[in-house]
Write a protein that binds this DNA or RNA. Structure first.
Length: 637
DNA sequence: CGGCTTTGACCGGCGC
DNA sequence: GCGCCGGTCAAAGCCG
């Protein structure tokens, strides 16, 4: 098994483990497919429990048999809808898109599904499917967090015994669909006869099934051991990380740092697309970007929807660190790919968003700008130097702009030297006097990539959609600042949580010492965070949202409840209420995502949204700038 | 009519 | 000091 494969596998296991930690009710079986369901995730709904779902799952299963990989099923709910409303048109659409993605990537499936529900409250679930089986043994592990009582089934043929009845209608069908299928096969046409008159053949099958089950149990034990080991490694790494954070960073001086947020990966594109970045971009940075991003190319899973967030301080790079730095990225990429992408046969990823932040000195405005504001992260406290930070986001997007959830007004356009593509200048119009600006420019080498650079700090609450994105990036920036400024003591509580949570995913992902103190050279170096699956904690970045003031349309108190047709509302926008502050403790952070599905969903949704260029693609021309955003957003002051 | 985009002009920083 | 370049301003026009 290759290192990457190893990482992928461990990542999958870790995720499952984390989920389980947060959701004791979840049952872990070693059998092939891991399905994680989160309740009450506003915009993520569980996989459809209908035929469509079954098909998708079958699809996934078939894919899994080819090689080890992790598939994540994300059910994105474009809008809140009644539980009963099963698959609306939008769902269908989303699911189709997801299916297409799945087919292409082989590993990623996104689909919207009607939440199945039990009560009248929306119960949406994110189902993460991780197929472990590679040898056709169908070894699958299925985790489910559907209701309070988890339902989880063994998909083994043997499991057929318990087959469907999970009792709950809620969990029902979809998940059990496969089982049923298997059972059907196992029991073969004996249905009519009633079972008593079993043929020898049937008995043989039964015995085979039992053997299979035994075998699966054994595998299960093995997997558990692996998980245990991984967990131990994880904690070890966390300890190391903590130690690392304690170390004074050499980067006290204002230096340029970068924060990368990548959605999917496209190395080639990212490497060359510096056009949108301010002059601050140095060759060194470019080189770093190449290394970090480019590394994805070599991975197997490079393509994809993988969302990863990496932070790094360019100032700290040393040539001799390249190897080490590159490694982390590779791993991350691999992990991301594992979770999402899949075959990795394609070097050119399609969804790729790169978030980059460079500090620019002199700015009175505290860094992380909108991101921080949105996320509720005290970027200011994190950035004692009052350095002004720019955050660039790269997104593969067909439209003129990417929908980040904010409202912008274009105030200028210029053709920057070196890039024939005009650079557009936008100003935040969410609130009068908001100093935040952004520049949008297409990547020279890959026109499909949009480079958006944000600057400044919002002086108003952000729409939820913007928050998701913003908080993510801000957290990245915060972390970046953190690492460059030294001790965590200087970091406020608010920022501390995010930072730690950021790390968790990273470690989680790799399950290997990616973030070694020595590797980063104290203060510098980079950290890579994965927003997808394996880095649930990233979601914790979404700052806790307090009730917004009624002054703003997106106030939680006035949920727009836009339908599928509610184009003005970013599909990722979520209720946003009920969020609770992310725990500061590392241990807590480990499962941050699991603990707060809303956050998780928001982060993922935002990332995916960006990745898909949803708005951008659909909108054209002037309408593109009209991002109507509107959802709950807490005053982040 | 208000809001937004377009687009040429203007301004300031920076390198030579 | 000059020119280049990035960023911004503001008038004009467009659109809903």
């Amino acid at each position: 098994m290759t290192w990457d494969n190893r990482i992928k596998e461990e990542s999958s296991l870790l995720i499952a483990l984390l989920i389980r930690l947060r959701h004791p009710d979840i049952d872990l079986d070693a059998s092939g497919e891991v399905a994680l369901g989160f309740k009450t995730v506003p915009h993520f709904s569980c996989t459809k429990r209908d035929k469509g779902t079954q098909d998708n799952q079958k699809e996934a299963r078939s894919m899994s048999s080819k090689k080890k990989r992790a598939a994540i099923d994300l059910s994105l709910e474009a809008e809140r809808r009644r539980p009963e409303e099963g698959g609306g048109g939008s769902d269908r659409e989303a699911s189709d898109g997801a299916a297409a993605a799945a087919e292409e990537d082989g590993d990623v499936k996104q689909r919207e599904g009607p939440k199945e529900e039990t009560g009248g409250e929306e119960e949406k679930v994110v189902e993460v499917v991780v197929d472990q089986g590679e040898d056709g043994s169908n070894e699958e592990i299925k985790y489910r967090t559907q209701q309070a009582e988890m339902i989880e089934e063994d998909k083994q043929p043997a499991a057929a015994a318990n087959v469907d009845d999970d009792g709950g209608d809620s969990d029902g069908a979809g998940a059990s669909a496969e089982e049923k299928h298997m059972v059907t096969e196992a029991t073969g046409g004996e249905g009519d006869d009633g079972g008593d008159s079993r043929t020898p053949m049937a008995q043989d099958e039964l015995s085979e099934m039992q053997e299979e089950m035994e075998r699966m149990k054994e595998e299960n034990r093995m997997l558990r051991r692996v998980v245990d080991k991984t967990v131990r490694d994880y904690y070890e790494l966390q300890m190391k990380l903590a130690a690392y954070q304690q170390q004074p960073a050499a980067a006290d001086e204002p230096k340029e740092t970068e924060v990368f947020l990548s959605l999917g990966a496209t190395a080639a594109a990212s490497a060359g697309c510096g056009g949108g970045f301010p002059e601050a971009k140095s060759k060194e940075q470019a080189a770093w970007r190449r290394r970090s991003v480019g590394s994805d190319d070599s991975d197997d899973g490079k393509e994809d929807l993988g969302l990863s967030l990496s932070l790094g301080a360019s100032s700290s790079y040393d040539d001799d660190q390249k190897a080490v730095e590159a490694r982390p990225h590779d791993v991350d990429g691999a992990a991301a790919a594992a979770m999402i992408g899949g075959d990795g046969s394609r070097p050119a990823p399609r969804g790729y968003a790169l978030l980059e932040s460079s500090k620019v000195q002199g700015g009175a405005a505290p860094a992380a700008g909108e991101l921080a504001a949105a996320g509720g992260i005290a970027s200011q406290s994190v950035n004692p130097a009052n350095r002004k930070t720019r955050v660039s986001v790269r997104v593969r997007c067909q439209g003129p702009t990417m929908n980040d959830g904010c409202q912008w007004r274009k105030y200028g356009q210029k053709v920057a030297k070196g890039n024939p593509c005009p650079r557009a200048y936008y100003r935040c119009t969410v609130a009068p006097g908001c100093p935040v600006r952004k520049q949008v420019q297409r990547c020279l080498e890959d026109m499909s990539i949009l480079v958006t650079t944000y600057e400044g700090t919002h002086n108003h609450p952000l729409p939820v959609g913007a928050t998701a994105m913003a908080s993510t990036t801000s957290a990245a920036a915060t972390f970046m600042l953190l690492s460059s400024t030294t001790s965590s003591s200087s970091v406020s509580d608010a920022s501390a949580a995010p930072s730690s949570s950021y790390l968790s995913p990273y470690l989680l992902n790799s399950a290997s010492p990616l973030l070694m103190p020595g590797a980063t050279g104290g203060g510098g170096g980079m950290q890579h965070l994965n927003l997808f699956g394996n880095s649930p904690s990233s979601s914790s970045l979404l700052a806790p949202q307090a009730p917004g003031s009624s002054k703003y349309p997106w106030s939680p108190n006035h949920p727009p409840l836009a339908g599928a047709g509610g184009n003005k509302r970013p599909f990722w926008s979520a209720g946003g209420d009920g969020d609770k502050p992310a725990p500061a403790a590392l241990a807590e952070n480990v499962g941050a995502v699991m603990s707060d599905p809303n956050k998780f969903s928001a982060a993922i949704a935002a990332a995916i949204n960006n990745f898909m260029g949803k708005d951008g693609e659909s909108s054209s021309g002037k309408s593109s700038s009209k991002w109507g955003v509107v959802e709950s957003l807490p005053p982040h002051e």
